[in-house]
Simulated assay, not measured.
Amino acid sequence: MKVAFAGTPDFARIALARLHAAGFEIPLVLTQPDRPAGRGMKLQPSAVKVFALEHGLPLAQPRGLRLDGKFADDAAAARAALEAAAPDVLVVAAYGLILPAWVLDLPRLGCLNIHASLLPRWRGAAPIHRAIEAGDTETGITIMQMDAGLDTGAMLLVEREPIAPTDTTATLHDRLADLGGRLIVEALELAAAGGLRPLPQPSEGLSYAHKIEKAEAAIDWRLPAVQIERRVRAFDPFPGASFTLGGESLKLWRAEPVAGNGKPGQVLRAAGDELVVATADGALGLRVLQRPGGRRVAAADFLRAHPLEAGLMLASAGGD
């Protein structure tokens, strides 16, 4: 079976590596163009591009795939490359571009998507983040037959994965990426034997995982402690939950709801290894923090370097 691949970040790289290790012929890899990143904002290749180059896989980086769009020349070149590759199937994982009809219709077996949720829950761009933020106790991987809708296609394989109370997007991402790589290999082996059985998505339980915006990372102490703690884990590693102290934006990487009452944003305890801030419902123990340009440190180390007084008011995201 000839398997073309479209993906960009590390989640996709892991799936591509599994397909390569399983011995599938990969006649073409599609990934996003290099993007500026880091302090120097130098162009950086995607994780998928790095893998493709290391393993000598044919590569294309179109800026768009719509033949009538702004990047029509790129789309036409990508179409010619895909037609020449003549894949039986296109596997898609966190690619970042919407696939127009000509792409969906080109492979003999269509396009299969590795989606990091239990569809129809958390269709959209950020299913891992949103599952943690919402307090879900489980998620999983759905291998989906892609159609023209947004994550609306028939389900081919589904496997569940529990979400631990301490999971961050980083830890859950890694487990789901491994699971997705294993399931897509299984799905293609079943497809080769004619053993896949598409199942329409349930009509109940639909939710959308909207893209994470940097503005969401600002902690609003007017929210309940439980909700803030979930956001801290959901926004690790990106964009990182943050709050302002003394004009400086600090990252909060680990927190824990604790007993305590006060005005939202009020420091209730700041001694030893305890840094506790009141919220709209309960209090939040700040466990791991980071100053700009610094490293992640435990609350005790932070307080030794930056003593705080109980009663200090931290600004909410709304500036109150």
Rank of each mutant, 00 (worst) to 15 (best):
V3N: 08
G7F: 14
P9C: 02
P9A: 03
A15H: 15
L19E: 04
F24A: 01
E25D: 15
P27R: 03
T31D: 10
Q32I: 00
D34P: 10
D34Q: 07
P36F: 03
A37P: 02
G40H: 03
M41E: 12
A47P: 05
V48C: 09
K49H: 05
A52M: 08
E54A: 14
G56R: 08
P58Q: 08
A60E: 15
P62L: 02
R66H: 00
G69V: 08
K70M: 04
K70E: 07
A72S: 12
A72I: 01
D74H: 11
A75S: 01
A76P: 02
L82N: 00
L82P: 09
A85H: 07
P87A: 05
P87G: 01
P87Q: 03
P87L: 10
D88E: 12
L99F: 14
W102K: 00
R108E: 11
L109S: 11
C111I: 06
N113C: 13
R121I: 02
W122F: 15
R123A: 12
A126C: 11
A126Y: 01
P127E: 01
R130P: 02
R130M: 09
A131I: 12
E133Y: 01
I141W: 10
I141N: 09
T142F: 01
I143E: 02
I143H: 08
Q145R: 12
A148T: 11
L150P: 06
D151P: 09
A154W: 00
L156K: 05
E159D: 13
R160P: 01
P162W: 14
I163H: 03
A164R: 15
P165F: 03
T169G: 05
T171Q: 02
L172Q: 07
D174S: 10
A177R: 04
G180H: 08
L188I: 14
L190I: 03
G194A: 09
R197S: 03
P198T: 06
P202C: 08
S203C: 02
Y208Q: 01
H210A: 11
K214C: 04
A215F: 09
E216V: 05
A217H: 10
R222I: 00
R222C: 07
V226P: 00
Q227H: 11
I228V: 13
R230Q: 15
F235M: 13
S242H: 11
S249R: 14
K251Q: 14
E256T: 10
P257L: 03
A259E: 15
N261M: 04
G262S: 02
G262T: 00
G265K: 01
Q266F: 00
L268T: 04
A270K: 07
G272V: 10
L275T: 07
V276N: 07
V277K: 09
V277R: 07
D281P: 08
D281K: 15
L286Q: 13
V288T: 13
V288A: 13
Q290W: 05
R295S: 14
A298V: 09
A300H: 12
L303W: 10
R304H: 14
A305M: 07
P307H: 08
P307D: 08
L308E: 06
E309T: 12
G311E: 05
G311H: 01
L312V: 08
A315T: 10
S316Q: 07
A317E: 14
A317R: 15
G318M: 12
D320I: 02
D320C: 05
